[in-house]
Amino acid sequence: MHDDNNLIQKFQSGDEKSFDKLVEIHLHNVFGFFLKITRDEMVAEDLSQDVFMKLYKNLKNFRHESSFSTYLYKINMNTANTWITRNKWKNILHIDQIPDRGEIDRTNEEEWKRKELWDGISKLPKKQRTVVMLRISDSLSYKEISDITGMSKGSAKVNYHHAIKRLKEILDDA
């Protein structure tokens, strides 16, 4: 954390190498976060690059009011939400190309379940989706989720509860 602040300050005073260091430190977490959502290494890498691109453009204005990891999570969440919305539309437009469950090989059952889970998550309202993504992908506490999303701890709990209930319904129906 202390390292992050030092690196940010150096970057803000014009040291480009500090940004590379920041990327090195946080790449694994950012990439892991997107890999859980997308299940595709290429897409996860692209989205990670999007995140660091946004970070590079906005880091000069970072005022150290919140922790850097919270700030980075916010960018992650916005990027993930954009990707999910875009993907949802893509799925709707190509609905006829989604194979029937009966056609799926049993060895891909796990993959199919994952796909259904993320399809279900993409159908949730934005707040519920955000909370559930942070909770299940990175096991964040409600306090951390409330810091990232700006909603209260209670609201985060309620949203998570509703999201899980809705997901259970969706996955049981499928």
Partner: peptide
Amino acid sequence: KIINLVQNESSGPDAASFI
């Protein structure tokens, strides 16, 4: 169940080539 479902074991891209 869903937390286990989203876990992955990928080591991620090489930092130098990513940068």
